[in-house]
Design a protein around this nucleic acid. Structure first.
Lengths: 254, 254
DNA sequence: CGCTATCTTGAGATAAATCAAAAAATGTGG
DNA sequence: CCACATTTTTTGATTTATCTCAAGATAGCG
């Protein structure tokens, strides 16, 4: 919203064409993770083109044809969601820097979900068939793709487990930790409205508000609007894991 | 356990070695879906060996090394689950005939979940690297694998969405329909205890019992112990979708 | 035939939903 | 830059679905 106030959070006119994977912030989380400079350059050459999207702009819509495209997030963050017959959003994920968009649609004709940028973002467009093709004599790439797929599968699995049995508090704690993960920062900007966050976690907006307030009062977080500072990360992790509320941590020493 | 009482539900000594994909019951749901006899035979030759597992026997445990193995379920059904640090099971899926076991572990070193047979089962052992290798000049196979992966991703995604916001009734309805799906039969055998079913859906055993009873009383199901007959499938689908309880179905005609 | 698991059933507790309204933030156009 | 419309958030009061706890019934199993 107010990026304009912060001078160049993203350089305004950096040339998308001149970007390469070598100097990418996502190099260690993206397809290039763990690769040497040579392999990294090879991946870089597979990028068809790069796109800049502004906050709120859609990358693709639900039921749009896929055409074998995948998009790596070079910077920024996205909101993926489905629209139910009833017409409301179900958020399916919040991929950020280094993630691949469109994995759930590989091998299918149309997208099963929509993706829109929650912040100004830069994407690297890839062709899935060409990636497969390239993977034949580029084992590191093939392995990395496999790994990213199984990671995604594991993430969804974890999410399902998480949503199935947890309290509102645990869900919120988990959610914040996931948001903070990619940058392992202590300061998160929640990219969703309270209502959308609730939708994602299976809660209502009111409950999200109340839980955040509670954690704020317990000095685990400092909440200001969409901005959350993780004051006591340890405690937050305990809460996410479902540990009993506020015990002197003496039990660890027993 | 008591298969011995039912004469040859599965032929007792049918030779695992002589089995082929051509005559497999899962031909249309497995890797071979949509293939002609020639391609089907090609897939068949990729099977390293076949295994018979008895009810309750484990195929693999959590944290066991993967060694690039995948298992196609030729017949039977499995229960996949994780063990939480606290020591209780979280069921992650109930794959049956035609499904691939171990997809969530491709490209990883160890299994993230355990798989045990809920009924006597026959499995076809495959090597993931060899499948990939074979896929290079066997496009139909490569396409099918991709499709199965993205299907699995979509399934998990659907599960997560489902668990996040649904009522107990919706969850149970959905669960039964999923169970009945592979054979599109009207008669399901619940492979799990009430407690495990509850674990899967994020409910308690008591709630599972009560919901089944309720659906029984509404004449949507006929429940007898682990055996469930889907009396009114249409209604069950409505309930799974979250349609308002018991309306004269006149609204369809309006 | 008893032993143990699992299932059912009930009564009471509770977390979160719902409903509703006020307060704050955001966006718009003059 | 300010008044106004819209959206989002907060907060409260009440309701409800589901959990918890617990006891009794049933089925599976040696």
């Amino acid at each position: 919203m107010h990026q304009s106030r912060l001078p160049n959070v993203v350089p305004l006119r950096s040339d998308l064409r001149s970007m390469s994977c070598a100097d990418c912030e996502a190099r260690q989380t993206c397809l290039t993770a763990g690769m040497d400079d040579a392999d990294c350059a090879r991946v870089s050459r597979l990028v068809l083109q790069r796109h800049r999207l502004l906050r709120g702009h859609a990358l693709y819509q639900m039921n749009e044809p896929v055409r074998g495209r995948l998009y790596a997030i070079r910077s920024g963050q996205f909101k993926c969601f489905q629209l139910t017959p009833a017409g409301d959003q179900r958020i399916t994920g919040l991929p950020s820097r280094g993630a691949l968009l469109g994995l759930d649609a590989i091998g299918t004709e149309v997208h099963t979900s929509a993706a829109t940028a929650t912040t100004e973002s830069v994407l690297c467009e890839l062709s899935h068939p060409r990636l497969i093709e390239a993977g034949r004599d580029f084992p590191a790439l093939a392995r990395r793709m496999e790994r990213m797929l199984s990671k995604e599968l594991a993430r969804q699995q974890g999410l399902a487990l998480h949503l199935s049995r947890q309290t509102a508090e645990q869900k919120i704690a988990h959610f914040l930790l996931e948001l903070a993960w990619p940058d392992s920062t202590a300061s998160v900007t929640m990219p969703l409205t309270r209502r959308d966050t609730g939708d994602y976690l299976g809660l209502t907006d009111a409950t999200v508000t109340r839980q955040l307030l509670r954690l704020h009062r317990q000095c685990v977080l400092r909440v200001d609007r969409k901005h959350v500072r993780l004051v006591n990360r340890r405690r937050l992790e305990e809460l996410a894991a479902g540990n009993p509320p506020a015990q002197l941590s003496m039990d660890k020493l027993a």
